[in-house]
Simulated assay, not measured.
Amino acid sequence: MTLLWYPCIFFLYFSFVKLQITDIDTNTTISTRLSDIFETDNSIIKLPHVTILGALTSDEHSKILQNISTYLSKDLYISSQSFILDLNPLLTVLKLCEKGYTSGAKVIIADHITDDDNDLTLNAISYVSDFYHIPVIAITSRENILADKALHDFIVRLVPPYLYEADAWFSIIRKLKYTKVVLIYSQEEESRMVALRFQMLTYDSDIQIERTKEYGPNTNFTSLILKLTTEDRLLARVFIIHTRHKDIDELLLAIVRLQKLENFVWIINERALKSNSSALFDGLLGVKLHDSFTEENLLIDATQLIVNTFIKFLNSSSSFWTENISVIDCLSVEPWGNGKDVYQALANTSVENGKTGNIAFNEEGDRIESLYDIINIQYGQPKVVGNYRSNTDYIKKC
């Protein structure tokens, strides 16, 4: 229902946005900095200009993007304008339409506010970008639903969806030479998707999933864990758990209460591992994105990706580079004519040796290669014991 509601939001507020920006002089020329205009033989030669629209979480990140965008290219003049995201997706859409119109931006870099499924700001941005064919680079959003191109057709992501931690589990278990596992997951869609991906990875492999258990609301975790760990015919000693945030404490405490720590290997999902729950016990394993995936580094890599993309259009007609044409115009019902070409170029562009590693995308617009830390809880604290690089056989012990 939420996904169906957002197209309605956009059109319900179309008239409101129109009232807010109709006083803008459409003949106004988007400003440029004279310091980036070159004088040769009394003539002025201006580089092709790309404006990035930042949908960010703080003024600090806006300043970082502004500073980054001034020095990355000799062939393009890159500038940026930003607005601060609002937890109210309607206000986010309004800000996007206003700043998008006045900036003349051709691409959006989008952050998100909270790391949970209740943060729907990127969904709101996505529906506007889909309508006007504006490419979006998401720098922190990892929800699995964003990979659905039927709903989000103009997004690429610099961070992998949580779905891909199943690949890390599979590689770690193979490295440790375990062949039998138990898979426990919640009824929520994200858990089901991760569990399904892990099951698919084990097909035609030497890893056998001996039991799968999908749990629902109000599950008695003590009974669940006791039944699985005492089953006579069960040979598996590796338990993989993908749990909801609100279930973490109760589930982990059930394992501790039953004293099922020493004879089993427990692997838990990334969101649970990052929760800093007091119930995290020694020996727990999991993965999380490497510490290089900071917002500053992601902004740098996103800007470099934009430079690498728009360089491909240097020989395009002058109309492509016209600065005073707003491609995000919420007074119009016409999408940007070049938007699809720019998105396809973006999705097929790479960055080598970026701040967060090598960047390239699959058909869903998701990043192909990402570096993870392998985490082990020791003395109640997370300790990095190795690294894993997705879509490779790279696993390194620290």
Rank of each mutant, 00 (worst) to 15 (best):
N144G: 07
G283S: 13
T26M: 00
L72I: 15
N123S: 09
N308T: 04
N348W: 03
S275D: 12
I325A: 08
I241D: 06
E296T: 15
T57D: 03
T121P: 07
T2V: 12
F14S: 02
D25T: 02
S277A: 12
Y6C: 00
G216A: 06
T140L: 02
S15L: 12
L346A: 01
R174M: 05
T51D: 08
I248W: 06
L19I: 00
T28E: 11
F361E: 07
F293V: 11
W321T: 11
L34F: 08
A302L: 06
K99I: 10
A150Q: 14
S370G: 09
S80W: 12
T140D: 07
L273F: 13
A166S: 14
T51E: 09
L273V: 07
N324T: 01
D329A: 04
F131H: 11
F281N: 10
G283I: 03
S126Y: 02
E60V: 14
N391L: 08
N123Y: 09
F264K: 00
D36T: 12
S326H: 10
L284C: 05
I64P: 03
H290S: 14
E143V: 01
S223R: 05
H290M: 04
R192K: 14
Q304N: 13
N218Y: 12
S186W: 06
E363S: 14
L253S: 11
I268M: 01
F313D: 03
S80M: 12
V265R: 01
E231H: 07
I84L: 13
S82D: 10
N220Q: 07
D148M: 00
S223Y: 01
T219V: 01
S58G: 07
K95F: 15
F14Q: 04
D206E: 15
F239C: 01
S126C: 10
V159C: 05
K246S: 15
A150F: 10
Y6M: 00
A195V: 04
V17M: 11
A166I: 04
L235Q: 10
G339V: 05
S317E: 15
E250N: 15
L120S: 11
I125D: 03
D119I: 06
F131G: 01
N387S: 12
L47E: 14
R244A: 14
N220E: 10
I328C: 10
S317W: 08
I134R: 00
F16I: 05
K175I: 00
L273E: 05
A279G: 10
